[in-house]
Design a protein around this nucleic acid. Structure first.
Length: 726
DNA sequence: TTCCAACTGTTTTTT
DNA sequence: ACAGTTGGAA
């Protein structure tokens, strides 16, 4: 059995799996069997009787990864995985908080707000406090608050050195208070609250430290400061932390991930074993060579180099298109060719830096009748009809939830307008009550008052009915009694929404099935509360599902962790990839460019056999045609690995603006040739060196936009500017 | 309450 | 370009 467990591993992997139970860092390159090592480690620990399943805590970032982990562990072990804590940071913290809600200072029925709810609450507060939302945009305040929490800071602990920050901190404090009043927590709160619970409560801390002697972390490079501190707290100085990650694939710094945790981990946990997994089982050699060459341009890495025992394979195909439309047509042609060669559509993916780029691609695919699937966008539990239903359910579970109250008090419409609500909000504020309590307390004057009472009565009666019903039937009742179903049935384009509501009822059935099966002993919540938490923590699948026979379209971020036979990496242009926001700050912040490069590294390593990289000379962006030059990342890949594709019937003078015209067929229109073409390097007497990035007009009116290395982009009239080509 | 026109902000995203 | 939001008029 033990032999069998280890037989499929290479020496490095085996070494990692069988390490003595001390803290260790596994630097696992892309496609090197990271998850396999982590799950086999768990199985090995249990199989060799070093630990029992109860002592294991395995944590990841996404629900998908957590599920995957559980499946793989179960497949390797004859025992059932119940009692093993495997989940996301948020999921595990949530579990701890439910179990110890009193110690954590929460109400039993506390609810989780998603980002939408959080933003709505902040907007509500800003309005109630008469704060100028021009000066303090809700969105920005939301970032401020989450940022503070992710750093481990309460409003009272934030150091504000200027008026603006002081004001934001003040609003943060009000927000905290409001959350407490309503009995709701946001995502970062789950982590911070849990961290505080464990750091303050010595008994609990001791208990969990005793219990979880083996902590395993996946995608360690993505941990935030707070998550890392949480791990430290839980580990103490006795427990072993088995951290698996890849600093070269850290692409989430923008949302708080801190690669520095890896270096810190080695120091703080006195890690003696850093094992590098560099053998790649995914891609052919040329693809790996390209990835290695590219990423070597980053400084500050824990060096690592991928290799394969397979051959070098095909060269990487590079294509320069005249326009974004033509780029899409090129990809469509190649996809058709792949299909003829027998590559399943689902084994090909188009990756792009930003979602906006999918439009043109979709258009071309649609015209060519190629089935495709786009990942990203609204998830199931984020749809408005679902959120409305959940809001009714939340009111039933916890009537102090103002966000839920406001969302559905007048949906479907029942004659409660702004004046009535304002009255109610004033009253609630005055007495320090939730909207629900305020509504129950007094009979407000006028028609709005009676309508509001009708609403609370409605919810009250729903609550009574639901008490005796199984969850799915309860939801069905709510959907009907609230009038939501009726409303969407009579709406013009409501068919999808009606379907989603039915789907929600199905989801409840499925959920309860799972819940009954793995209900842990410490969970004594009502089914409803559990379902609501589930809905908030697991908004629905965002990443690719296997199976569907369609071409896969997604951002590079969404592609992390996936692999395809053939990958089309599109839009490789300066300003797009690397994104302009990452290029600009040449002084200081070089970190963001390095993150872009890591993103490119992730993109390249998704391909198993064939990689296409394309860029367009012109592209529609924000309603304007932009002229871009090829991404610097292409130049960072050795030319001998590349094969530059040519399209035969498109011969053009290199100095002409012809090619920037957005036509897919050979161009017939002749536009005057100019030496001032996009991409031309120039020198200006005052601004110095730069590159032409845009142009307009002709003759003596002609102007060009030059992006100067030191002075940034400037529009210049050719007649006066005295530009010199270099 | 509903509807339409004007206005805005557009990197990446999980929980 | 375009989707989502807001504010004012009907």
């Amino acid at each position: 059995m033990l032999e069998e467990l280890l037989s499929g591993l290479n020496p490095k992997q085996k070494e990692a799996v069988t390490l003595a139970p001390r803290s260790a860092l596994i630097l696992a390159g892309a496609g090197s069997g990271k998850t396999k090592v982590l799950t086999t480690r768990v199985a090995w620990l249990i199989q060799t009787s070093q630990v029992n399943p109860l002592q294991i805590l395995a944590v990841t970032f996404t629900n998908k990864a957590a599920k995957e982990m559980l499946i793989r562990i179960s497949a390797m072990l004859p025992i059932n995985t119940r009692g093993m804590w495997v989940g996301t940071f948020h999921g595990l913290c949530h579990r701890l908080l439910r179990a110890h809600y009193r110690d954590a200072g929460l109400t039993q029925a506390f609810q989780i707000m998603d980002s939408q709810d959080q933003l709505a609450m902040i907007k509500r507060l800003l309005k109630a406090l008469n704060v100028d939302d021009e000066k303090y945009p809700a969105r920005q305040l939301q970032y401020f608050i989450n940022d503070a929490k992710e750093t481990g800071l309460r409003a009272s602990q934030v150091e504000a050195h200027d008026d603006y920050t002081r004001k934001q901190t003040e609003l943060y404090a009000v927000y905290e208070e409001q959350c407490a009043k309503e009995g709701v927590v946001d995502f970062s709160e789950l982590l911070l609250r849990c961290f505080e619970l464990l750091s303050r409560n010595e008994l609990l801390r001791a208990h969990y430290r005793q219990r979880f002697s083996h902590i395993l972390v996946d995608e360690f490079q993505d941990t935030s400061r707070l998550q890392y501190q949480w791990l430290r707290l839980l580990a103490g100085d006795k427990n072993s932390v088995f951290a698996v990650g890849d600093d070269d694939q850290s692409i989430y710094a923008f949302r708080g991930a801190d690669v520095a945790n890896m270096q810190d981990f080695i120091k703080t946990f006195s890690v003696e074993e850093v094992i590098k997994l560099e053998q790649n089982y995914r891609s052919h050699g040329n693809i790996l060579d390209a990835a290695n060459a590219l990423i070597s341009h980053n400084k500050n890495r824990l060096s690592k180099s991928l290799w394969t025992s397979e051959g070098s394979g095909e060269p990487l195909r590079v294509y320069e298109a005249a326009s974004d439309m033509e780029e899409a047509d090129f990809i469509v042609d190649e996809v058709k060719a792949l299909r003829v060669q027998g590559v399943p559509l689902s084994q090909a993916a188009i990756l792009y830096r930003s979602n906006a780029q999918s439009r043109v691609l979709e258009h071309a695919l649609f015209s060519a009748a190629i089935p495709y699937r786009v990942y990203g966008g609204l998830r199931f539990f984020e749809r408005q009809e679902i959120k409305h239903t959940l809001a009714y359910l939340r009111l039933i579970a916890n009537s102090d939830d103002d966000a839920a109250f406001l969302r559905v008090v007048n949906f479907p419409t029942r004659g409660i307008g702004n004046r009535g609500l304002e009255q109610l909000q004033d009253l609630a504020k005055e007495r320090g009550l939730s909207l629900w309590k305020a509504a129950c307390l007094s009979h407000l004057s006028g028609r709005a008052g009676t309508n509001i009472s009708a609403f609370t009565n409605l919810v009250e009666s729903m609550r009574e009915t639901c008490l005796d019903l199984p969850l799915a039937e309860a939801i069905e009742h709510v959907v009907e009694a609230s009038g939501l179903m009726q409303h969407y049935r009579s709406e013009r384009d409501g068919a999808d929404r009606v379907e989603n509501l039915n789907e929600l009822i199905n989801a409840a059935v499925t959920f309860i099935g799972e819940y009954e099966k793995q209900k842990s002993d410490d969970a004594n919540d009502s089914e409803l509360t559990a379902f609501l938490s589930h809905a908030a923590l697991e908004a629905g699948e965002h990443q690719a599902l296997p199976g569907s026979e369609a071409l896969q379209l997604m951002t590079v971020h969404a592609a992390k962790g996936l692999e395809f036979y053939s990958v089309f990496l599109s839009g490789l242009e300066e300003g797009l990839f690397p994104h302009e926001n990452s290029i600009s700050l040449q002084a200081g912040e070089s970190g963001s460019l390095e993150e872009e490069r890591r993103l490119m590294y992730v993109a390249i390593t998704r391909a198993r056999r064939r990689l296409y990289m394309s860029y367009a000379q012109s592209r529609m962006l924000h309603g304007q045609t932009r002229y871009n030059v090829a991404s610097r990342f292409l130049q960072e890949i050795p030319e001998e690995l590349l094969k530059r594709l040519q399209v035969e019937n498109r011969e053009q003078p290199a100095t002409s603006l012809t090619r920037v015209d957005g036509m897919a067929t050979p161009v017939s229109r002749v536009i005057e040739a100019s030496v001032w073409r996009i991409g031309q390097n120039v020198v200006h007497a005052k601004f110095g060196q730069g590159i032409i990035i845009n142009s307009e007009g002709r003759g003596c009116d002609a102007r060009v936009q030059v992006n100067f290395h030191n002075a940034g982009p400037k529009w210049l009239a050719l007649e006066y500017a005295k530009l010199v080509r270099v």
